[in-house]
């Protein structure tokens, strides 16, 4: 817990005492999300079928839909950056949902996890832009008019640096707020109070993961398309 209301009891504290590593809770819950995703992926890879059934069907529908959405927004180039976008979305979604399990805390309710992911996004879309445009990528920072270019250079730099910060703070604020509300309602009215909130928070957590995905897509669009 960074600050604010401490979680009453998390499994990670118990695991940490057993292992004696002295790591903060969000690291354990991130590992948990990674284990869940890797297990799902390996299980699916083992029995891929031409006619999908069960879990393969669910994943194919969700990922196919997201790919269509990305290609509709980014064009055919979207297929090249789609693996990054989609793994980001699924990873954040699983980490968010883990926060809903009693005794677990969302890894995204800690600034450090989100800052790491937002920095990855920042470096990735700039890398894609530089790879595509070479030195001409600087035109993306210049704005439409040559006379205003020095001013626009500073303005764009400020707004580009603000992007990872706002990604971090948005995800952290929403998920942390939801965790605090859950703890507070659990203190007030143990099961009765928290159960209705679960429906709201499943929606909220899905939307937050989707916002991260959509903003990453918009930033990638900005670095892929021609500058003005």
């Amino acid at each position: 817990m960074a600050a604010g209301l401490p979680h009453p009891l998390t499994y990670s504290v118990i695991i940490d005492e057993k292992l004696g590593l002295g790591l903060p809770p969000h690291v354990y819950y991130m590992w948990m999300a990674m284990i869940i995703l890797l297990t799902c992926a390996l299980m699916l890879r083992g029995r891929l079928q031409l006619v999908p059934g069960g879990m393969q069907n669910v994943f194919e529908t969700a990922i196919g839909g997201l790919e269509d959405f990305t290609v509709a927004n980014l064009g055919e180039e979207g297929r090249r950056v789609f693996p990054f976008l989609c793994s980001m979305f699924i990873f954040i979604l699983v980490m968010n949902y883990i926060g809903l399990i009693p005794g677990c805390d969302a890894a995204t309710a800690n600034v450090n996890t989100n800052a790491a992911m937002a920095l990855c996004v920042f470096l990735y879309y700039n890398y894609i832009g530089i790879k595509k445009w070479g030195f001409g990528y600087i035109k993306h920072f210049m704005g439409p008019m040559p006379a205003l270019a020095p001013l626009m250079l500073v303005l764009e730099t400020v707004s580009h640096i603000a992007r990872p910060l706002s990604l971090t703070l948005r995800l952290f604020g929403n998920i942390r707020g939801e965790e605090i509300v859950l703890v507070l309602l659990f203190v007030l009215a143990p099961v009765l109070g928290t159960l209705p909130m679960y429906f709201l928070f499943i929606l909220g957590k899905t939307i937050q993961a989707f916002i991260f995905f959509m903003l990453t897509m918009i930033y990638l669009k900005g670095s892929l398309e021609h500058a003005h």
Binding site: A62, G64, G65, D68, L165, R170, T206
Partner: peptide, 28 residues
């Protein structure tokens, strides 16, 4: 939320767009 053949529905897109406005102002 993923109603039309797994595609993100319009409501999802609108909700997430509404969620993004405002924070850029503060962080910038």
């Amino acid at each position: 939320l993923f109603s039309n053949q797994g595609k993100p529905s319009g409501a999802m897109e609108i909700l997430s767009t509404a969620g993004t406005i405002g924070l850029q102002l503060v962080t910038a």
